[in-house]
Each structure stands twice: as structure tokens, then as C-alpha cells.
Design a protein around this nucleic acid. Structure first.
Lengths: 192, 192
DNA sequence: GTCTATACAGCGATAGAC
DNA sequence: GTCTATCGCTGTATAGAC
């Protein structure tokens, strides 16, 4: 209900991101966006001529979100375990609540129906996140906080896909599932 | 290219299941099914008047698949670890290959857009699978093969969502990801 | 930057002939 | 059980006025 929205383009991306996390990229339309923003479909097309353009903008928004959160987590002064917790609860769980899934999980699930231009972007986003988590896990093992075998990269894959899977499961089965899975994984990471 | 297909209905369900695993329930159409089966849309509607009917049939097909595979795994004479391996590789990975995801993961991702009638069915399917895995894990802990803390149910949640997440990740990033994640999880389950 | 108007393909769905 | 034909709606997309 703003008379003059500061940045319509950003507003559209924000709403599209939410619909991506709840319904998936192919399951929301320009009509949905227009309706909820109180403008017409043609206005959305003015900002993003093709839906693939909006899709690329979504990937960029996710990357900026990553960079913000990675920087915040890195600069947080605490143990490796606390940093990992900050990312899981303060970033992933915070961005999803009880009704949304991780935007990257949503894109992965629909990969075969996605516009061509979005696929390499998705792969880069996943890799970027894995690098970051591997860095945290490696530091935690160096400091003796974490116990795991194999490479930090492999453990990061396991860690990240478990978090994402837990978010997806908990949307259907209740958020206790998320807490249970995270507690279970944490215990193993700490060697208990 | 069969002149007189024995069971068209089954044929439709089989193809729909494959499209569910690759594109998602809302991302395949009666047109896709008709085209690939060499008949018309109207013929599909004869077997499944509404798409929700097809959705319910898909859930039933998944349940029958579960019951078959659970029985096969239970009757397999081997250690708990070998049974778990049989389910992961002989059932889940076998049914998905390198290009498909678990049908239940697909339905979970699109839960918000799904026909009403499919949601309770999905929850039951997930629970059924968790019961089965919890049973295997519990037996394995009793026999001293597995080491984990907390309830077998909680560990089953962690185990299953990790398998599903690994299948989804590996479709985008290559099947080495699946092997790495499974090896990593197995090591933790065995207390190594 | 937003609108009206329109185009056109695809969707799920139905009626009725064979 | 399959077909042709058709319906109304929704999807993305474009042209052009304000």
C-alpha cells in the first residue's frame, strides 16, 4: 500500500523469491505477482520481459543473500560450532520459517523444467555454499571441535543436503522434524 | 509400440510416475502423457477423469512399490547394514538412476500446489517409509552394528532425508555426490 | 512505469460419435 | 477404449497509449 514504491524491481524479486520457496519456479505466474503487488502483468513484463529474465534475477538475489550471510557468519566471533549454528538457524531456518523451503532446493527439484540460462547459475550457487560450509567444517576439525572422517568437502555435502532435506520434510511433517534431524546430526559431528 | 497393451491404465501410471520424478506433478500434462503413449488426451481422461485422480493413483502405486520393496528387504538374509544398503542402492538409487529423484521428494517440493486429496496420502507414505527404516536401524543398534544416540525414529528421519537430499543433489552435481554423502553417513552410523 | 488490449499456445475437462 | 471437436481458463508475451 505504498503510494510510490522505492524500488519496484526489488519488490517483484522479493515476492517472486517467496513464491519460489512455496510453490516452485514453474508454479507461480506473472498474474500471481501482479495481483499481490496491485499492478498488471504488463508492468511486470516491463521490468522482466521474459520469465527467464526474472529467473536469472532470482539467482542473483540468492547470490547476494549468500554473500551477505557468509560475511556475517565469518565475522561472528564464536566457536566453529556456534558459527555453523548461526548459519543453520540464523540464515537457512530464518529464511524458510515453517512454510518455505530453501530457494536452491526448490530450483533443484524443478531443474528439468527450468529455463536454460538458470541451470549453470544454480550449479554455481550450490558450489559457493558448499565451499563456505566446507571452510567452517575444516576450521572446526582443526580446532578439535568436530570429529568426522574424509574430506571437509564431502562432509559439507552431507551437512548441507541434510539441512535442506530437513527443511523440506519439516514443512510437511512439522518443525519438530527439523529440530530432531539437526540435533541428531550435531551429535554425530561432535563425536557423541 | 504394442498393438494391444495389456493394461493401459498401468501404462499411464508408469509413465506419469517417471514424469513426476523428472518434472514434478504440476509440470507434466495430459498432453505429455498422450503424446508419449501415442493416444489422445481424451483417452487419458477416460482412465483418470481429473488430474487429482491420477495423483491419487500415483500415491497408490508408490505405496505398492514400498510394500514390495520393504518385504523384499525384510526377507533378505543379511546383516542390518546389508539390508540398509539393499534399500538405499537396490530400491532408492535403482528407482531414480542419475536423472530422477524420489517420487516422494518431488511431491514434497510441490506440496503447496498439489490437489487436496494427495496431501494426507503423501504424509502417510512418508510415515510408512520412516517406520520401516526405524525398524532396520533399531535392529542394527540392538545387534551392535550401528552406533547412534537418541530414538531410532529420529535417526530414521535423518537417514531418509539425507538419502533423498543426496539423490536430488546428485542429479545436478553428478552421482559422485551421492556416493560421497552415503559413504560419509555410513561411516558415522558405524561409529568410525 | 503503468495501463488497456490483444495474441496465441497450453492447460484440464467434457460431449458425443465410433 | 479411443477418437474428434470444442469449451473456458490461464499462461507468457507484445504493441501502443498515457
Amino acid at each position: 500500500m505504498q503510494a510510490r514504491p522505492k524500488n519496484r524491481k526489488q519488490q517483484i524479486v522479493d515476492l517472486a523469491l517467496e513464491l519460489l520457496q512455496t510453490h516452485g519456479f514453474e508454479n507461480f505466474s506473472y498474474r500471481d505477482l501482479a495481483g499481490q503487488l496491485g499492478i498488471t502483468k504488463a508492468s511486470i513484463h516491463h521490468h522482466f520481459p521474459k520469465k527467464a529474465d526474472l529467473g536469472v534475477a532470482l539467482c542473483q538475489a540468492i547470490q547476494e543473500w549468500h554473500e551477505r550471510e557468509f560475511a556475517r557468519t565469518r565475522s561472528f566471533s564464536g566457536s566453529a560450532q556456534e558459527k555453523l549454528d548461526l548459519y543453520v538457524r540464523g540464515t537457512l531456518k530464518f529464511a524458510c520459517g515453517d512454510t518455505k523451503i530453501c530457494p536452491l532446493s526448490s530450483l533443484q527439484a524443478d531443474i528439468a523444467s527450468l529455463p536454460e540460462a538458470m541451470r549453470p547459475a544454480l550449479k554455481r550457487l550450490d558450489d559457493h555454499e558448499l565451499d563456505f560450509i566446507a571452510e567452517l567444517l575444516d576450521a572446526g576439525r582443526e580446532s578439535g571441535e568436530f570429529k568426522f572422517s574424509g574430506s571437509a568437502r564431502d562432509q559439507a555435502i552431507l551437512f548441507v543436503l541434510t539441512c535442506k532435506g530437513a527443511l523440506q520434510y519439516s514443512r510437511v511433517h512439522g518443525s519438530e522434524v527439523f529440530d530432531a534431524a539437526m540435533a541428531q546430526m550435531k551429535a554425530q559431528l561432535l563425536g557423541q
